[in-house]
């Protein structure tokens, strides 16, 4: 692959050690590129200083769209396009539209949010992933530091030392 990047990888075998290490390393002023974990580690996103996700806002917007689409479609159909007399009941009966409007709100919100999730994470069926260490979906945790042209051997040495001091069980460099 043409666009490979080089990383310094620190492997941990415990989530509590990892969390502690992330806090200390960031306090020392080194920027962590990413963290790979086999399951969601609570508090890791705060420790890494990631912005809170706004995916729930997408859910609300899609839900509101579904609500509007359902109610306006039914209104258009029952009042203008083909008004039908069902046993003398009103042409427009809001209460009877509650179930379909509700279901549509949920449907739009769920589909919209799920699609946004895969879009934002850039995940799709058949994607070839850049796997740092395949044990990170099993029992180990990884921290990566991107090594671009500005990072010299001194940087690699200090960060490696720091990782080991913080409890990393392995430190190595990898190009993916």
């Amino acid at each position: 692959m043409s666009d490979t990047k080089k990383y310094l990888v620190g492997i941990f075998d415990d989530d509590d050690v990892l969390l502690h290490a992330v806090k200390d390393i960031r306090k020392s002023g080194y920027e962590i590129t990413d963290a790979y974990t086999p399951f969601p580690v609570h508090g890791l996103e705060h420790a890494l200083g990631l912005e809170p996700t706004r995916i729930h806002a997408a859910g609300f917007i899609f839900g509101a769209t579904g609500f509007t689409v359902a109610l306006s479609m039914i209104t258009f159909i029952n009042l203008f396009n083909y008004p039908t007399d069902f046993g003398g009941k009103p042409y427009w009966g809001l209460l009877a539209y509650v179930p379909i409007t509700f279901e549509h709100t949920v449907l739009f919100s769920a589909i919209g949010m799920t699609v946004s999730f895969y879009y934002l994470c850039k995940l799709w069926p058949g994607k070839t992933p850049k796997i740092i260490d395949e044990r990170t979906t099993d029992h180990l945790f990884a921290l990566t530091f991107e090594l671009d042209s500005t990072k010299d051997a001194n940087y690699v040495n200090t960060v490696s030392e720091l990782l080991k001091k913080e409890g990393a069980i392995e430190v190595y460099q990898k190009e993916v």
Binding site: A35, Y36, E45, L123, K127, P129, I131, T136, T137
Partner: peptide
């Protein structure tokens, strides 16, 4: 879907 389990 090519999941790798990053923090984000």
């Amino acid at each position: 879907f090519g999941w790798i389990g990053t923090a984000k």
